[in-house]
Design a protein around this nucleic acid. Structure first.
Lengths: 278, 278
DNA sequence: ACGCGTATTCCACTGAGTGGAAGAATACTA
DNA sequence: TAGTATTCTTCCACTCAGTGGAATACGCGT
């Protein structure tokens, strides 16, 4: 995604020069975006110095300076009192208008609230984006288990409840592509073998719920179900994440399963999905 | 905010020319931003044709074409099957990382949920941005009153509950500036006189809650309270919006008032605010 | 006072961005 | 089926906006 360092675009006195001068063939727009990407980058820093931005974006300091000023004047970046820069409210304002996120969220939220209220556990709403589960919404009470999901964050498909559901109903070529890569094993319990995963996906398609336990974060389990749109296509997944119950043999409270199913159905219906098939 | 049409920057054959050729002195960055602004613009359209974007941004078609392509390749815009463009997920992803919004939301959400649960009414969280109330969060059940607030939306300070609270605790020069402008009267009940508003603001500061009835949307009333950060500064406001009760003389259910107060205090405390005064 | 990291300003050079115009799709209409 | 809008895409010669190295200014610790 981010990546290449890149540098100046001048060819200048390379007349008889030895080393080919590194050229930055990125367009102005690409450079501007690189500056934003500096904030999304792996190390999730909420504020950066000018130099740090220049560094991460692979741009000369003076160019960065000029471009950052442009972002600030538009409101996409904000300068805080300590001189560091952070993402600006304007960006948030524009970002939340994004139709996919906004529509789904608006429709789903009441159902997610119901689910939260009846379970008192983390409630997640995620969609498939590229090869990740992208978290659109997350409701948590005051005392829920610590989890790593964040709104706007991404987690792998094979080790999360929502991820596995999204993968189960994804196009076959995506499943094949995903399973052909080597998958990270976050905990001893994480299932990474393609064969086993395929069985799991089939199980999820058969039962309409995914059950995960101790595969991403120690001490937490999750239970997820698919959300379908008018056309029957799975467009999102809901889940609840609970503290793992050492008693329960495999899978959490059955009442939870009903609640998650009900929430998923509710949202699907609100999206125009008909037919309850078993 | 958006505004000026602007056009080409060439001066060319104006040798003896009469009309001065319209020049667009916007930078590349400013033009790129203008394209995004086209989507935020007054007429809240969720998807636009290329021509419409060019139009709203005041850019030549070919330039728009090239720039839109840049946005799409980064993910800030997305092209849908029908050829129209909409804001892209990438923008959402970056936007939700914006610290102010993210931190406040994360901390406040559990309290907002409690408030929603106990009141079953619209719950709003807003901050002061420029001269508007900017809505950061909104929780609504399945059957709540129709209101016009949206997450990411803006509403005036003098005609909404959260707005009035934010104005009440704003710096004096902002209050003066705001009240010196002519204020829109949305409904017969909207208070627009500077004098009356000042009295109201004083009342809000004295009681710690704002009560509004039939001033923005017919049939709805609202009740708002301030949220303070560690330093005691009011940084946001919570409110609930209820269907106006024709019986109640002025102001909604007293239990609601307690709940809103409690939510505001809860969030303030979570933000590090100490001292309960009164 | 001195050094070091960071931020800002300056300016000569040049190729990236520009936009008018022509061509290609696509959608209505008759 | 041809005819006419309307919207989108590609092309290319021109030139000025953007570029980045260097010099300067700032801030902080020692």
């Amino acid at each position: 995604m981010s990546g290449k360092p890149a540098r100046a675009r001048f060819t200048e006195q390379q007349a008889e020069g030895e080393l080919s001068p590194p050229v930055d063939d990125r367009s102005v727009a690409a450079r501007l975006f690189a500056i934003l990407d500096a904030f999304t980058a792996p190390t999730q820093a909420s504020s950066l110095t000018l130099t740090a931005i220049a560094d991460r974006a692979g741009l000369p300091l003076s160019t960065t300076h000029r471009m950052v000023a442009e972002w600030v004047s538009w409101g996409g970046l904000a300068r805080q009192e300590d001189g560091r820069y952070s993402l600006g409210m304007r960006l948030w304002e524009v970002g939340v208008q994004t139709p996919t996120a906004r529509n789904l969220r608006t429709i789903a939220l009441p159902y997610l609230e119901d689910l939260y209220e009846s379970s008192r556990e983390h409630v997640h709403l995620a969609i498939l984006d590229g090869r990740d589960a992208l978290y659109l919404e997350k409701l948590s009470g005051h005392h829920a288990v610590r989890v790593i999901s964040r709104v706007g964050g991404r987690l792998p498909l094979h080790s999360t409840g929502v991820g596995l559901v999204l993968l189960a109903y994804a196009p076959n070529d995506l499943i094949d592509a995903y399973l052909s890569e080597s998958l990270d094993k976050y905990l001893p319990g994480t299932v990474t073998s393609p064969g086993e995963l395929r069985k799991r996906l089939a199980g999820i398609r058969a039962h309409g719920v995914a059950v995960m336990s101790e595969e991403m974060t120690a001490g937490s389990s999750s239970l997820a179900a698919p959300i379908r749109d008018r056309t029957g296509l799975v467009v999102a997944a809901v889940s609840i994440v609970t503290r793992t119950n050492p008693q329960a043999p495999r899978g959490p409270h059955p009442a939870h399963e009903q609640a998650v199913r009900a929430a998923a159905h509710g949202v699907s219906r609100a999206l125009g999905y008909r037919r309850s098939e078993a």
